[in-house]
Amino acid sequence: MGLIGARNVDETFLWGIDAAFVLDRRGSGDIVTSCGGYEPFCHLAFGEWVEDIGRKYSHGEWRCTNGGSSDARIWASHGIQTVNLSVGYQWEHTDDECLDVDACYETVNVMMGVFEEARSLRGVLREVRIPRRRTSAS
């Protein structure tokens, strides 16, 4: 809650990490690429690459969108290309919280595609970088 865990990760744990996939978005089909449209988590080309993977490996419709704060914000502040993917839950943090299992499996399919297509991801990552920001502003 409140990014406490992500903010307290030892920075050395993140050394050498080029890309991160946060699996913590409600609903289905969202590829969150920024906090509110004003704080990018990744370069547009990285988000579009994930959209392509979604089309190829999932039956769901995946699209880049703006979202709220998440651990993706912290990883991006360290210069890591990051997206936050929908995993199928609704009404989080309430007594009515539930999971759409089919939507969750579609996220699994996308992640399987990410691993399958890792070689092409390297090319995207070589071309794009986001500036490293200080985590104190996160």
Rank of each mutant, 00 (worst) to 15 (best):
V32L: 01
V32Y: 03
T33W: 03
C35G: 01
G36K: 01
P40S: 13
P40T: 11
C42I: 07
C42R: 02
C42K: 06
H43T: 10
H43K: 05
A45D: 14
V50D: 11
V50T: 05
E51L: 10
D52F: 01
D52W: 07
D52N: 15
D52T: 14
I53W: 01
G54A: 13
R55C: 02
R55M: 01
R55A: 08
K56M: 06
Y57W: 15
H59P: 12
H59T: 13
E61Y: 07
E61N: 14
E61D: 09
E61W: 02
W62R: 00
W62P: 02
R63E: 04
C64Y: 02
C64I: 01
T65R: 00
N66T: 09
N66I: 03
G67N: 02
G67C: 05
G68Y: 03
S69I: 14
S70V: 07
S70F: 00
D71M: 08
A72R: 04
R73A: 15
I74H: 01
W75N: 03
W75S: 08
A76N: 11
A76L: 04
S77G: 09
S77N: 06
H78R: 15
G79W: 08
G79Y: 10
Q81K: 02
Q81I: 10
Q81Y: 06
V83G: 11
V83W: 07
V83I: 12
N84V: 11
S86F: 04
S86N: 06
S86H: 06
V87R: 00
G88M: 06
G88N: 08
Y89W: 14
Q90P: 03
E92H: 05
E92L: 15
E92F: 05
E92S: 15
H93E: 10
H93V: 05
H93P: 02
D95N: 06
D95G: 09
E97T: 12
C98D: 07
C98L: 12
L99I: 13
D100V: 00
D102R: 09
E106I: 00
E106T: 08
E106S: 02
E106G: 06
V108R: 10
N109V: 00
M112I: 07
G113D: 12
F115E: 11
F115A: 14
F115S: 14
